[in-house]
Simulated scan of single mutants.
Amino acid sequence: MTTMSTESSISKQIVELVKNQSWETGTHLPAQLLADRLRVSRQPINTALAMLHEKGLLTRERNKGYFVGEGFSQGVSDIMQALGIEETTVTTAVYFRIADDLLKGELPQEFSELLIKTRYNLTASQLNAVLSRIAKEGWAERKPGYGWAFSSMLLTPDSLLQSYRLRLALEPAALLEPGFKLDPQVLEQLRTTERHLLAGGFETATADELHDRGVRFHESLVEASGNAFFIDTIKRVNRVRRLLSYRSMRQRDRYPEHCRQHLHVLDLLVKERNDEASEFMKEHLQYTLSSISKIGDILKP
């Protein structure tokens, strides 16, 4: 397996984002919005958009930018094949094995690249891809000199609950910020995602898709506050809580109610009833906190 270039990697992420969000033909793809979602600068986004346009997947309008084209009616695998981008199924599978083994206490706190490469039978490029993803998501980091270390922040069941208690203090306040303004296009994209999941999409979505959907919803609302301190904090929390969040997704019967609550928050914000939206956000996060508390056995090693 060859290492995926930055251009191809960003293109792949844009394709997956468009498909996961069910963005229809003609949807505008602002470079800054994509850069914020994928947490990269605009330069690689613009390069990737140009490549997708060249391949016929996007249309472009002068002085307006890029839009979803008819080519997105194909499945993700067909689009990737047309782009010549190899899907990283092996590294994704190993990523989840490492996460599960870590939570079961079967991996040491400090580890070498050789241990991971040997234990999971990886090539050098696969090893690099897996460790890069883990490091980017904040639950392991390279030690000074030699070796790696897993973060101890999210290795206990109570860690996920603690992260929700922090969010309970922050997110309702974000909706009350004086500069709060939610972009109408972002709002409609959030609505489309929630309706798709409510229609049964939560049953077939991958753990990645479910986690990212929740992250996008809550980060979008905090970003709308315009408060840089709130935004930085919520993004840090979401990066490091991913590990236990995956395991909590094994029971999905709470997701339809989550979707309905998300849609209600959006309805209140559209009507500029931010005080009510803030109060309901508290109820929503408390509901989630209570739901996760009841599945404690899933979170335990």
Rank of each mutant, 00 (worst) to 15 (best):
S5L: 02
N227G: 01
V94S: 00
V15G: 00
R252S: 03
L17E: 09
V130H: 02
R195H: 15
Q32N: 13
V222N: 02
A169Q: 14
S225K: 02
V186W: 07
G145T: 03
L52M: 02
N63P: 05
L210P: 03
Y246R: 07
A82F: 12
L155W: 09
L160I: 02
K117G: 09
R241T: 08
A99L: 12
L103M: 07
N20A: 15
G226P: 01
K300C: 11
P184M: 09
D297I: 10
V94A: 01
L33E: 13
P108C: 04
G201M: 04
M51G: 03
S248Q: 11
S291D: 15
D232S: 13
S293Y: 02
E223H: 10
H258T: 08
R213A: 11
L190Q: 05
N274Y: 11
R191F: 04
E141W: 13
M153V: 11
V94R: 00
R62Y: 13
S8F: 13
E283C: 06
L115K: 02
G71Y: 05
S152M: 14
R273P: 05
L52G: 01
K282V: 15
E209Y: 06
L175M: 03
A35Y: 07
G201H: 05
E7F: 03
I10N: 00
H196D: 11
L221P: 08
S112W: 01
K104G: 11
H258P: 04
D100T: 14
I231D: 02
E137C: 06
I14V: 05
M153N: 12
D158E: 15
A35M: 08
Y66T: 04
E272M: 08
A207S: 09
D208W: 12
L263K: 02
I85L: 04
I98Q: 03
Q81W: 13
R142C: 01
L221S: 10
P301M: 07
W139F: 15
L268S: 02
M153A: 13
E177P: 06
V237R: 03
I231R: 05
K143V: 04
T92D: 15
M4F: 03
Q189S: 15
H196S: 12
T206W: 01
F150C: 10
W23D: 10
T288N: 13
L285Q: 02
A224R: 00
R42A: 10
T156F: 06
V186D: 09
A174S: 14
F72K: 07
E137I: 09
K294P: 07
N20T: 13
G69K: 03
G69F: 04
K282M: 10
